[in-house]
């Protein structure tokens, strides 16, 4: 088979040369969604919605489509959902970060810590990834850089006991936010998911502390992202998604299916490797970026 014909321009980019609404326009719209990892079934649903609106609003000009699509995507993202991070009314708020390997859990912890420190909160990090080589060293490095407290243990130690010590220290020291880093694990590994449940149970022993279980999802992930979200939600009751690495060209379209099917809101977005590269998730911005896919870099 031959090489593909150059890159795939974003929908907006491709539309410039056309005006009329025809089959080809719809095909291009579909391709844009698929290329953004939205997935075939969610794409079909979105296209139907946009088509219905195009008919009812008597839209004949292709230029109007991006706007319609953006609106449908933003609507699919539960525009009104509460995307703020929850806090305990008294005592420490524990936010636990979970996810498959290498998605950005540890880095997101650093980013959250930086943000909380900025807001004048007292932060403690719990290095409950005792499995991966130098995982705790990585977190210690961030703790030093950000000037926050950290609880860690030897490699191979029980992650539950790290969580326990961290919660205990947080209560006694008057910490506001305790950020629990967990080892990356594939959702298919039953024993590792059990271990994670145990960590969560230990955090829950401090009444009212567990406020967020954040699933970290790499924006370059394809359709497997939905399976990840399903399994982690079932195992540990995910309260929100952090979509990382959106500073690349990937669009993270799988979160549409995640919100639609599981009702778990995307709360934060990672935009780089530094501590300040974290922003709140904005459905309208996300929708615009998705529809204008690749436009800027063609």
């Amino acid at each position: 088979m031959s090489k593909p014909r150059g890159g795939f321009a974003g929908f907006r980019g491709r539309l410039r040369s056309r005006g009329k609404l025809d089959d080809e326009t719809w095909d291009e719209l579909e391709e844009t969604l698929l290329l953004a990892d939205v997935g075939a079934s969610t794409t079909a649903v979105l296209l139907d919605q946009v088509k219905a609106r195009a008919v009812s609003e008597k839209v004949r000009d292709a230029d109007a489509l991006p706007g319609l699509l953006e609106a449908e995507i933003a609507a699919a993202l539960h525009a009104g959902a509460d995307r703020s991070l929850q806090r305990a009314s008294s005592g420490p708020s524990a936010w636990v970060l979970v996810g498959v390997n290498g998605v950005g859990k540890t880095t997101t912890i650093a980013k959250l810590a930086a943000r909380e420190v900025e807001d004048g909160h007292r932060v403690l990090l719990a290095a409950a990834d005792t499995f991966r080589a130098a995982a705790a060293d990585q977190l210690v490095h961030w703790a030093e850089r950000l000037g926050v407290e950290i609880v860690r243990a030897q490699e191979g130690a029980d992650p539950g006991s790290v969580a326990f010590d961290a919660l205990e220290a947080s209560v006694s020291r008057g910490v506001d936010v305790v950020l629990v880093d967990t080892a990356g694990r594939l959702h298919t590994k039953t024993n590792l998911m059990e271990e994670l449940k145990k960590v969560l149970r230990i955090v829950e022993r401090t009444p009212g502390a567990l406020q967020e279980v954040l699933l970290v999802l790499d924006a370059t992930t394809g359709q497997n992202g939905l399976t990840q979200a399903r399994q982690f939600t079932e195992a540990v009751g995910v309260t929100g998604v952090v979509l990382t690495k959106l500073d690349g060209t990937a669009k993270g379209g799988i979160v549409l299916a995640i919100e639609a099917e599981l009702g778990v809101p995307v709360k934060l977005v990672g935009l780089g490797e530094s501590a300040e590269d974290l922003v709140d998730f904005d459905p309208a911005e996300f929708a615009a970026a998705l529809v204008g896919a690749n436009e800027e870099d063609e």
């Binding site: 990892d37 290498g102 992930t221 394809g222 992202g225």
Partner: peptide, 28 residues
């Protein structure tokens, strides 16, 4: 990463343009 979605093509093309790639390792 074996979980990579549609971006795999862009990633591979750009890395191949920079490095004399001789192969791929598919992880996870």
């Amino acid at each position: 990463d074996a979980m990579t979605g549609q971006e795999a093509v862009n990633v591979a093309e750009t890395f191949a343009a920079t490095l004399p790639l001789t192969g791929v390792v598919l992880t996870k």
